[in-house]
Design a protein around this nucleic acid. Structure first.
Lengths: 197, 197
DNA sequence: GTCTATACTACGATAGAC
DNA sequence: GTCTATCGTAGTATAGAC
C-alpha cells in the first residue's frame, strides 16, 4: 500500500473483476461501463484495456467468476437442504436469488447475449458446469424421467428463480419492503411446487 | 400520405409510441433511445421533444399503453380458458409471455424504476388496473384465502411468467429453438403448479 | 502498467429558422 | 410541427509519454 507517484495495484485485473461485480449489483448490466469501473478503482479509463481487450472480455471474465461462484453457492445450498432430492433442487432457487441479489450477476450476465460470440474457454467451461449442476439436481428430483423432462424441470427452476430475482432487482416488490431472504424463501417454495411428485 | 417538402405525420405522437414498442421488442429497454425511435420514423431527433418533454415521458406513455393492452390480453386469455378459476389464472401467465414476447414491453417497462417518480395519472390508472386484474384472478383461484396470500399468488404467477419471458428474450432457450408459444405453454403449466389445491 | 490526451460515436436536450 | 444546428455529457477505444 506504499503510495508512489502513480497508482499501483498489485493485481488490477482481479480488482477490475471485483469492482465490476459491485457495479453490476448497484446498477445492473444496463448501466455497466468500463469507464465507471475504472473510476471506482481510481485508475484512468485507459488502464482496464491493458488487462482486457475490450468491454466484452471484461464481462466474460465476470461471467466466468459468477458461474463458478453461483455453482458453489447452489451446491452448498443443496447440501444444506439435506438428502431429499426435491428439497435439494428447490434450495437451488433460493441460492440463486441470494447470490444474484447480492452480486447482480445472474443469468443475464452469465449468459449475456452480448457474450455469445466471445471466445473464452474458461467461461464456456464454467457455464457448462453450472448447467450440469442444475441438470444433476433436476435429474435426481422426482425420480427417473426422460432427459428432455429433466431439462424442462431445470429450466423451470431457473425461470422461477430468475423471475423473482429480476422483479426484486427492479423494485417490483418495494412496497412490501421485502428482503432478499424473503424473496429467496418464496422462490424455494415456488420451485418446490414445480417438481412432479 | 401526400408527400410534401417536409415529413408530415398525421399523428407523430402515436407513431412514436408505436415505434417505441417495435424498438423495445427488438432491442429491449437496454438499448432504447429516443434518437433511434425518431430515426426509424424518418424524423429528426428533435421532433419527439415536441410531443414528449423527455425520454421518460415517452416511456411513460408506452408503459400506459402496454399496461392497458397486456391487461386486455390477460382477460381474453382467462376467458378463453373457461370457467375453472385455476385455469384462468394459469392462462394469464401464457398471455404475459406471448404479449411481452411480441412487444418487448413487460414488467420491466411497465413498472420501470426509471418511471417511478414520473407523474402520469393515466399510467398510474392503467398499472393499477393491471394489478387489480391479476389480484382478481388470483383471488378466485384456489378458493377463499387471506389477502396477503392472494397477493403472494399473483406475484408468483407474474414471477414465473416474467422469468420465462426474460430468459426467452435473452436467448437462454436458443439451442432448443423454442418458439414463444412453446415458452408460453411452459409458463402456463408452471403457473398452474403454483396454485394451491 | 499506468498515465494523459484524444478521436470517435451516440444520446439527451435546446435554440432558432421555416 | 418539423427542421437544422448545436451543446453537453458519457462511453469505447487507441496513441504515445513516462
Amino acid at each position: 500500500m506504499s503510495p508512489g507517484r502513480s497508482y499501483h495495484h498489485g493485481d488490477l485485473r482481479a480488482a477490475l473483476i471485483e469492482a465490476s461485480f459491485e457495479l453490476l449489483a448497484e446498477c445492473g448490466l444496463r448501466r455497466f461501463s468500463v469507464a465507471e469501473v475504472a473510476r471506482r478503482l481510481g485508475v484512468s479509463s485507459a488502464a482496464p484495456y491493458r488487462h482486457f481487450a475490450d468491454r466484452r472480455q471484461l464481462l466474460s471474465a465476470v461471467s466466468t467468476a459468477a458461474a463458478r461462484d453461483l455453482r458453489t453457492a447452489i451446491e452448498a445450498a443443496a447440501d444444506a437442504a439435506g438428502d431429499d432430492p426435491a428439497a435439494r433442487l428447490a434450495a437451488s432457487a433460493g441460492a440463486y436469488v441470494r447470490y444474484v441479489g447480492r452480486t447482480g450477476a445472474g443469468i443475464q450476465v452469465i449468459y449475456a447475449a452480448e457474450l455469445y460470440d466471445v471466445a473464452d474457454d474458461a467461461r464456456r467451461e464454467q457455464t457448462r458446469a453450472l448447467m450440469t449442476t442444475m441438470l444433476d439436481l433436476a435429474g435426481a428430483a422426482g425420480g427417473a424421467r426422460t432427459y428432455p423432462e429433466v431439462v424442462l424441470l431445470a429450466e423451470a427452476t431457473i425461470a422461477v428463480a430468475h423471475g423473482y430475482t429480476s422483479l426484486f432487482a427492479d423494485g417490483f416488490f418495494a412496497r412490501n419492503s421485502s428482503t432478499v431472504d424473503d424473496i429467496a424463501a418464496r422462490a424455494v417454495e415456488a420451485a418446490g411446487a414445480l417438481i412432479p411428485h
